[in-house]
């Protein structure tokens, strides 16, 4: 049986910093995240009259479901830490990252952060009908860069993504890209900016082996610049090599929080059991 490690005891007992005070950068205080999913039920009555009736009577449609993805999570992350988030599919890892980034509001509890954390995901929505180049510009502007900065950085991003390795793809619409190419471009855009607190959501799993090596190198650079890094990944090896601390999340609750060497074996035991 995987006995949950008491996060409080563990957190303070395993000080990883070498000298100097530990400065918290992310404080998560009993956070619950609930989000609504529309169209979950079987169709529902979509006639205009029924829609009006629902609005007037204020009844909830059966097609709307609430998902309680994170249930009361508390922890503190410190400057210089790389924290791995592990857990089975649907355990609330990505939702928790979004809550830390302030993109998904906590319905109870609060998240306190130093500066503005950035979510480095591969699912940043881009416009598929536009060329890769224009998407790069749009993505950079959306991250708050100025037009001169964007002009300066665009060639670097295109080059890093490697989409032009086989002909001039950057001027073609994104809908003509393979899924790997699109993912590489998205990652390259997101990785172009420096961050205080960096949240990485499965971003390392994109592209072919060569791009993966390059992106891992880039993440290491970003880590060196960033204060604190969170990494969501299903690849245990990635967690082992990049994170000294791991938080194991299961069904929206923390099962274990501590040094990676202790948490990961527990998690592997749990996953192999069934």
């Amino acid at each position: 049986m995987a006995e949950p490690i008491d996060p409080k005891t563990d957190l303070s007992a395993t000080t990883t910093t070498v000298g100097g005070p530990r400065i918290p950068t992310v404080v998560v205080d009993d956070v619950h995240v609930v989000y609504r999913v529309y169209g979950a039920g079987a169709g529902g009555n979509g006639s205009p009259v029924a829609a009006l009736k629902r609005m007037v009577t204020g009844t909830k449609s059966a097609a709307v479901r609430e998902v309680h993805a994170v249930k009361g999570v508390s922890f503190t992350a410190y400057r210089g830490e790389a924290v791995g988030l592990i857990g089975s599919n649907g355990s609330g890892k990505s939702t928790l990252l979004r809550a830390i980034a302030g993109l998904l509001p906590a319905s109870r509890g609060a998240v306190y952060t130093q500066g503005q954390p950035s979510l480095l995901g591969v699912n940043a929505a881009l416009l598929n009908d536009l060329s890769g180049e224009r998407n790069v510009a749009l993505g950079c502007l959306a991250m708050g860069m100025t037009p001169p900065q964007v002009r300066q950085i665009t060639p670097d991003i295109i080059k890093f993504s490697g989409i032009n390795d086989r002909g001039d793809f950057s001027s073609l619409p994104m809908r003509t890209y393979s899924s790997g190419m699109a993912a590489r471009l998205r990652f390259s855009i997101a990785a172009a900016k420096k961050h205080d607190v960096l949240l990485i959501d499965e971003a390392l799993a994109t592209g072919d082996a060569r791009f993966r090596r390059r992106s891992e190198q880039r993440v290491r650079e970003l880590r060196a610049e960033a204060g604190t890094v969170f990494l969501v990944s299903h690849s245990i090896d990635t967690i082992r090599t990049t994170c000294e601390r791991s938080i194991w999340l299961e069904s929206g609750v923390i099962r274990a929080d501590g040094p990676t060497d202790e948490v990961v074996p527990e998690y592997e035991k749990y996953m192999n059991r069934t």
């Binding site: 409080k8 303070s12 000080t15 530990r22 400065i23 918290p24 950068t25 992310v26 404080v27 998560v28 205080d29 009993d30 508390s74 503190t76 809550a99 830390i100 980034a101 302030g102 993109l103 998904l104 509001p105 609060a110 998240v111 306190y112 952060t113 130093q114 954390p117």
Partner: peptide, 23 residues
């Protein structure tokens, strides 16, 4: 061993001047 562990999460955040995410 650590003076901060006496604080609640909210107090800890206030002490180090952290702001609420997504406020």
């Amino acid at each position: 061993a650590h003076p901060d562990s006496e604080l609640t999460q909210a107090q800890l955040a206030a002490r180090y001047g952290l702001s609420v995410a997504g406020a």
